[in-house]
């Protein structure tokens, strides 16, 4: 059984996981009291009508009087055909809202992810190679600074310095500029910098500690003794085993990227992305958008885990497909 069969099984399992999550979501939604039904009862009571009849009318209108299995099938069909409902807080279909927001989130999250994924391990490795030197302390200080300072606060400070005082960057995000343009790069530079400094710390530290384990490992000493170049030792013999546990951290980082940090940074820099969409929908109690955005995160998480499992096997050939 080879890699192909392993991948096929993992992909199939991802579908099962999303199916379970979506089903559980349906169960929770069905069990929760429907605000529309409650509101109808309240309005009827205010108007002197029968609240029970009003509730029945709304249930009928919304199809809530159908058998549960029918409701479930309808719900699942809608989810998988991307018919995610209507956003009351934006007066547009949920899929349209999510797509619009994703367009802007991708613009800063791709450079952010690439920078974190490449710079994090490299800085950690550099730090490890120069352990306890001033270079190590500088890198460690940088990592802890980024980790410790709240993103939104750091963002506001940079916005005031570079936007208000120096006038180098626009203070509010301009959606009119082309994606691949200097203007866009300028307006995204600070948000990406803030996010990179905020998320690189964890990866850098894990990378440093993992690398340190291998710096004096037998196979590294052997490589040195054989006259292998320092660059090759770090790249092939130290970085590669370091990346195995690190890939787990990275997936978690990717998820945090789309939820936690991005909300605050999007608010500060007025970027109309997924974080703001979710935040606004929660505040406005726009259930359809909250559900739609959450489902998107579920898919990202599932795909992230899938990639993580695949990356394991590529990075460390000793990991067997058969036993997994």
């Amino acid at each position: 059984m080879g890699l192909g069969w392993y991948i096929a099984r993992r992909v199939a399992w991802s579908f099962v996981v999303t199916f379970i999550i979506v089903s559980v979501t349906w169960g929770l939604l069905t069990a929760a009291p429907n605000p529309e039904v409650q509101q109808a009862a309240q309005q009827a009571a205010m108007a002197g009508d029968n609240p029970a009849e009003a509730q029945d009318r709304v249930r009928q209108l919304r199809g809530l009087d159908r058998p549960l299995y029918e409701q479930y099938i309808g719900y699942m069909t809608n989810i998988y055909t991307l018919n995610w409902g209507w956003s009351d807080s934006r007066a547009q279909p949920v899929t349209e809202a999510v797509t619009e927001a994703l367009y802007y989130t991708v613009q800063y999250s791709v450079p952010w992810t690439l920078l974190v994924v490449t710079l994090g391990p490299l800085v950690g490795l550099y730090s490890s190679a120069n352990q306890y030197s001033w270079k190590d302390h500088l890198a460690t200080g940088f990592a802890f600074f980024g980790y410790a300072i709240p993103n939104f606060f750091f963002g506001i400070i940079l916005l005031l310095i570079f936007g208000v005082e120096l006038g180098w960057i626009p203070i509010t995000y301009n959606t009119d500029v082309p994606v691949f343009s200097v203007e866009n790069a300028i307006q995204l530079a600070v948000p990406v910098f803030v996010l990179v400094t905020g998320s690189i710390g964890g990866i850098m530290r894990v990378s440093r500690n993992e690398s340190s384990e291998y710096m004096n490992a037998d196979f590294v000493k052997t490589a040195r003794a054989k006259g292998v170049s320092t660059f090759r030792i770090y790249a092939r013999h130290v970085l590669r085993p370091t990346m195995v546990p690190l890939s787990t951290t990275m997936v978690a980082q990717l998820l945090a990227l789309f939820t936690g940090s991005s909300i605050l940074v999007e608010v500060v820099f007025s970027i109309p992305g997924l974080g703001r969409l979710l935040f606004r929908a929660i505040v406005a109690q726009d259930t359809s958008v909250v559900l739609g955005t959450s489902l998107f995160f579920v898919f990202v998480a599932t795909i992230g885990n899938l990639l993580q499992d695949l990356v394991y096997t590529v990075l460390d050939p000793r990991i067997s497909f058969d036993e997994r």
Partner: peptide, 10 residues
């Protein structure tokens, strides 16, 4: 649209 007051004032 700018949610953050500092951004609006800035």
């Amino acid at each position: 649209v700018a949610q953050e007051q500092s951004a609006r004032l800035g």
